[in-house]
Design a protein around this nucleic acid. Structure first.
Length: 419
RNA sequence: GGAGAGAUGACCGAGAGGCUGAAGGUACCGGUUUGCUAAACCGGCAUACGUGGAAACGCGUAUCGAGGGUUCGAAUCCCUCUCUCUCCGCCA
C-alpha cells in the first residue's frame, strides 16, 4: 500500500515539515518492502516444491514402497523454508514497526507549516474583558468548588478534587452533554472501560509512538485510556460493518488519564493541565467519501455544547505541522478564559481518514456487494471538562463574586448560581 | 484463585495424520418450473499475500481461536497463550 502512494506520502510528510526527519525511514520502508516480496517468492517456491514431494511420499507409502530419498528431499526443503520464514518474519517485523511510526497524510484543505499557519475559521460569542475576571483557581477555591491541596495529597500534583457544587457541576456537565448528543445529535450512548489492552492502543495510534504519555498497568500489558476515543473506536476493531449502519455515531463519558511527561510548568496552573480529567467523547465511523462533511457535522455537535454553555469560542484549523499524528484534518475548539487571559483548547475534532481503520482493521461491506473497504473514523471531544469549568468560573463570574450558571445547566445543577 | 469442557467458513455442524479450502445443512445470490404467497429443482457463494494479465481471470502460498513443537506431511498429535461455558472459592 505504501509502495503505491510513496510520492503522496513524501509530499504529506513535507507538509508536516517532517520530510527531512522521515525521508530515510521511508527509503528504508521501500527497501524492506522489496526485500519482503523477494523472500516471499523464494519461500513459496520451496513450499510448492515440498508439497509436491510430500504428496509423492504419501502415494508411495500407500503403495507399500519406501520413500527415503523423497523424505530427505522434503526435509532439506523444510530446513530452507524455516530459514526463509525466519528472514521473512524479521523483515515484516521491521517494516511494520516503521509503518507504525509514520504519521497520517493531511488533506488538501490543511495548510502546510507549523502552528503559526493555523487559521481561525470562525468565532462565536464575545470574549469578556480580562481585567475584571478572577482566575478560576481563585474562584474555585473561594467558593469551595475545587480542592487542589487535597487532590495533590491523595494522588499527587495534577489531580483534582471537586466538592459540593463543584462536584455537582461535573455531574451536570456529563449529563447535559450526553443528553444533547444522544437526543439531538443521534449518538448511541456507551459506557466503556478505562483500561484497554495494547492492540487497542495501537489501533487508534496512541502506540507505539506515545507510550511515555500513557499510564501503564504494572502487572498487565494494559493502559489507562488518555481518551474514550480508544475504547469507542476499538469497539469495531477487526470487524466488518454493514453499509446500512454507516455513519455510525457513538458517544461516551469517561475519565481520561495523561502523564503529561515533559509538560511541567507550561500552562499547568489550576485546571489547565491535569493528569486525570473527565470528558465526553464523540466518535463516528463513516464511508470514506463522506468524511469531509462528517467532520463539519461532528465539529458542529461539539460547538453546540459551547453555545449552550454560553461560552465564547473560536474554531481553529490546524496546519499540517500542528495536526496530530493520526489525523488528516483537525479543528480545535478554543474557549476564552478571561481570568487567565487565554484561549483554551477544549476539543480537537479530527478526521483520521483510513489511518486508524487500517491499524484497527475496521471495514464496511459496500451495499453493491463489493469487497469490504476501510471506513473513515472521526472523533472529537464534546467536551473536555476541566477547561470548560475554568471558563465557566471565569466568564460567568459576577461582580458579587458568585458565578451565574448557564441556563442549559440549571436544572441539572439545581441552582442558578455557584456561591 | 481452583477444577473441568470447548473454540472449524455469515450461521449450524461433520472431520480424529496424506485423497480436506474443508462433508452436510441454513442463510444469501442467479436460474428453471408451478396461474399469486410458498415449495421443488439446478448452479454459485471465504480471505489475505505473492505472481502473471489492459481486464476477465489464471497460477502459487497461507489460513480450521493465536503462537510454537513433533512429522516426509497437521484442522487432526504435543506444549504455551487468549477467549467462551460449567462448578467451587472470593468479592462491590
Amino acid at each position: 500500500m505504501v509502495r503505491e502512494h510513496i510520492d503522496a506520502l513524501r509530499a504529506g510528510m513535507r507538509r508536516r515539515g517532517a520530510l527531512d526527519a522521515l525521508s530515510p525511514t521511508i527509503d528504508r520502508a521501500v527497501e524492506l518492502d522489496r526485500n519482503r516480496r523477494d523472500t516471499i517468492q523464494a519461500v513459496e517456491e520451496r513450499k510448492a516444491a515440498r508439497n509436491a514431494v510430500t504428496q509423492q511420499v504419501g502415494q508411495k507409502k500407500r503403495a507399500g514402497e519406501a520413500a527415503d530419498d523423497l523424505q530427505k528431499q522434503s526435509r532439506d526443503l523444510g530446513d530452507e523454508i524455516a530459514r526463509l520464514d525466519r528472514e521473512l518474519a524479521q523483515t515484516e517485523g521491521q517494516l511494520n514497526a516503521i509503518l507504525l511510526e509514520l504519521p497520517n497524510v493531511t488533506l488538501d484543505v490543511v495548510p502546510a507549516g507549523g502552528e503559526e499557519s493555523n487559521s481561525i475559521v470562525r468565532t462565536w460569542g464575545v470574549p469578556r474583558e480580562g481585567a475584571s475576571a478572577e482566575p478560576h483557581w481563585e474562584v474555585g477555591g473561594r467558593l469551595g468548588l475545587i480542592d487542589f491541596e487535597r487532590g495533590a495529597k491523595i494522588s499527587g500534583s495534577g489531580f483534582i478534587v471537586f466538592r459540593r457544587q463543584g462536584a455537582r457541576l461535573v455531574r451536570s456537565l456529563l449529563n447535559l452533554m450526553l443528553d444533547v448528543h444522544t437526543r439531538d445529535h443521534g449518538y448511541e450512548e456507551a459506557w466503556v472501560p478505562v483500561v484497554v489492552n495494547r492492540p487497542s492502543m495501537i489501533g487508534t495510534a496512541q502506540l507505539p509512538k506515545f507510550e511515555e504519555d500513557m499510564y501503564g498497568l504494572k502487572d498487565e500489558d494494559a493502559f489507562l485510556i488518555p481518551t474514550a476515543e480508544v475504547p469507542l473506536t476499538n469497539l469495531y476493531r477487526d470487524e466488518v460493518l454493514p453499509d446500512s449502519e454507516l455513519p455510525k455515531a457513538v458517544t461516551a463519558y469517561s475519565s481520561c488519564f495523561r502523564r503529561e511527561a515533559g509538560a511541567a510548568g507550561k500552562d499547568t496552573r489550576g485546571l489547565l493541565r491535569v493528569h486525570e480529567f473527565d470528558k465526553v467523547e464523540l466518535v463516528r465511523f463513516v464511508k470514506p467519501e463522506t468524511s469531509g462533511e462528517q467532520l463539519e457535522l461532528l465539529t458542529g455537535h461539539a460547538e453546540k455544547i459551547l453555545q449552550l454553555l454560553e461560552l465564547p469560542y473560536r474554531v481553529v484549523r490546524l496546519a499540517s505541522g500542528d495536526t496530530g499524528f493520526a489525523s488528516a484534518h483537525t479543528y480545535d475548539l478554543e474557549v476564552f478564559a478571561p481570568g487567565v487571559g487565554k484561549w483554551l483548547e477544549v476539543s480537537s475534532c479530527s478526521n483520521f481518514t483510513d489511518f486508524q481503520a487500517r491499524r484497527a482493521n475496521i471495514r464496511y461491506k459496500p451495499a453493491d456487494g463489493g469487497k469490504p473497504r476501510f471506513v473513515h473514523t472521526l472523533n472529537g471531544s464534546g467536551l473536555a471538562f476541566p477547561r470548560i469549568i475554568a471558563s465557566i468560573l471565569e466568564h460567568h463570574q459576577q461582580k458579587d463574586g458568585s458565578v451565574l450558571v448557564p441556563a442549559a445547566l440549571r436544572t441539572y445543577l439545581g441552582a442558578e448560581r455557584l456561591s
